[in-house]
Amino acid sequence: MENLKKSILLSIRNLHVYYYTPDGVVKAVSGVDLDVYHGEILALVGESGCGKTTLGYSILNLVPPPGRIVSGSIIFEGRDLTRLSRKELDEIRGKEITMIFQDPMASLNPVFRIGDQMIDVVVHKLRVDKAEARKIVLNALKAVRLPNPEEIMHRYPHELSGGMLQRVVIAMAISTKPKLVIADEPTTALDVTIQAAILKLLVELAREINTTVILITHNMGVVAEVADRVAVMYAGHIIEVGNVFDVFSKPLHPYTKGLLSCVPRVDIEVEALPTIGGDVPSLINPPPGCRFHPRCPYASEKCRREEPPMIEAEPDHFVKCWLYAKR
């Protein structure tokens, strides 16, 4: 996307999010900086437990207990989301930023009709009357190409398949025309055969209404197919950010290289991340210095002692690694 207008929609600075569990403080996100541009599809990738989902929740300032945002700022259109009151946040949630979860079956209340749930959201978010909300919901259901949208509104969640439900959830997300949609592994719970279709639909619709998407995934194939930019997360840090083409053609961080080592071509879908030697580090007691150093073939003494800064190694291609520090 060379011609993308590069105005910043969301800007995360030095964000720390910790979970205070009985076993200790889990530092799920520690010192993350990230800019998200208007209208782009940004993929946030990493192994499970690296903090990517927590980062997604933080953007809505909805970190599940016992977690909370410890420090840092999340600037969304000039407002710092970490400093807003619950009431102000509730105004933004759903209307300007919304989120799609992994399991569509669990995301909808099983004892309410699909239409009623969607209408309720539209009524409260767009402040329109029920009849108007109904029209909006109907259009949204048509937009996600569900057959018989009228009938689907009368159905209960358990009466639809997972794929149809995820379309419903997407319809619900776009019905309020938000500026940012955070999609947390939106196709993982679905049948493999329909994953691509659902994902393409999401991206297509987002582009249509000029909505920005943060796509959280562990599937590199997905990233290559739909994203504009990619941010790689490892153990609570973002370690590499860049355009999809740049990152895939010339990965800089040893971890990213490892991730892509099994992907001969960017347009081939891979089931999961290839394994990299060593263990995923504990987020309660993360290793000092660069968090990847215990698994890194290039680790030096410096990597063990000092945390590397984010370095712009190539234009618009950032990496958090001492290998690229200007000496």
Binding site: L89, D90, I92, R93, G94, T98, L108, D120, V121, T176
Partner: peptide, 26 residues
């Protein structure tokens, strides 16, 4: 503890509606 309550929170639905309508029925 269910995910569908999280959905309502993500959509910033009024707490009153979440409690009196959705949680009350479920």
């Amino acid at each position: 503890s269910r995910e569908h309550v999280k959905t309502l929170l993500v959509y910033g639905m009024p707490r009153r509606v979440i409690l009196m309508k959705y949680i009350a029925k479920s």
